[in-house]
């Protein structure tokens, strides 16, 4: 009547226990890390639109200012998108028969809006306001990335709550001079006013920006 288990059982038992412990730790690790990966946040995912509009060409190449199309960025909560009428100001003159622009022409003809798809999106319960950010020295590039060299719009930032909180806790280093707000190529140079000077200029800091009532209601 030999022993119940073979000698190899020792190693097997240790392996099983270690793998169990490893599995649990891996699970916790995945649950903690995966949501903050770029993959999970769809960062750098290009969203296909009804019309492949190229910012690189229009902003980088032609130098059109953001506010030409996104008209309400300085006065309203949403930045707004251009009505088809704005596109057709030029495209009624040039590329008038391009197959690529057929949806634009059809939209104006049939008075049916173009269904653009959102790229940098926040959940519905977050009430982001463009006007106050632009007024307080936050540039478009801070959240939308280098739009000037994006052939097709892609999501540049993770847009997690942590991303917003990092800036709301310490806005100074992320501010930029008023003239550089809409310049996506801007970066800080030695003669750029110091963060403290910018904070004073924009008079930021009178309010606790990490209150929940700032973004949620």
């Amino acid at each position: 009547m030999a022993a119940i288990f073979p000698p190899a059982a020792n190693l097997a038992a240790k392996l099983v226990l270690l793998s169990l412990a490893g599995l649990v730790l891996a699970g916790i690790g995945w649950w903690w890390l995966f949501p903050r990966t770029d993959y999970a946040r769809h960062v750098d995912w290009t969203v296909d639109q009804p019309v492949p509009f190229s910012h690189q060409h229009h902003v980088g190449g032609l130098g059109i200012d953001c506010r030409f199309c996104h008209t309400t960025v300085e006065v309203a909560g949403n930045a707004g998108l251009p009505p088809t009428y704005t596109c057709m100001t030029c495209h009624s003159q040039i590329w008038t028969n391009a197959a690529l622009l057929a949806p634009v022409r059809r939209s104006l003809a049939e008075n049916v809006p173009i269904r653009w798809r959102r790229v940098t999106d926040l959940p519905d319960y977050v009430y982001f306001n463009h006007a106050i950010h632009v007024a307080k020295g936050v540039g478009c590039e801070s959240c939308h990335g280098q739009v000037a060299d994006m052939p097709l719009m892609r999501k540049a930032r993770s847009m997690t709550m942590g991303f917003c909180l990092d800036c709301h806790r310490d806005p100074a280093p992320r501010l930029r001079p008023p003239e550089a707000i809409f310049d996506t190529q801007w970066h800080r140079t030695p003669d750029t006013p110091s963060p403290a000077a910018l904070m004073a200029h924009y008079r930021v800091g009178g309010r606790n920006l990490t209150d929940c009532s700032i973004c949620h209601r």
Binding site: T72, L81, Y85, W116
Partner: peptide, 22 residues
């Protein structure tokens, strides 16, 4: 789930009175 995003719609011709946002 992120909820069905039915996209952003803007009227083809800008509405006369004021901006859409405010």
């Amino acid at each position: 789930d992120a909820g069905a995003q039915d996209g952003i719609l803007m009227p083809p011709v800008r509405p006369a009175s004021g901006t859409v946002g405010t």
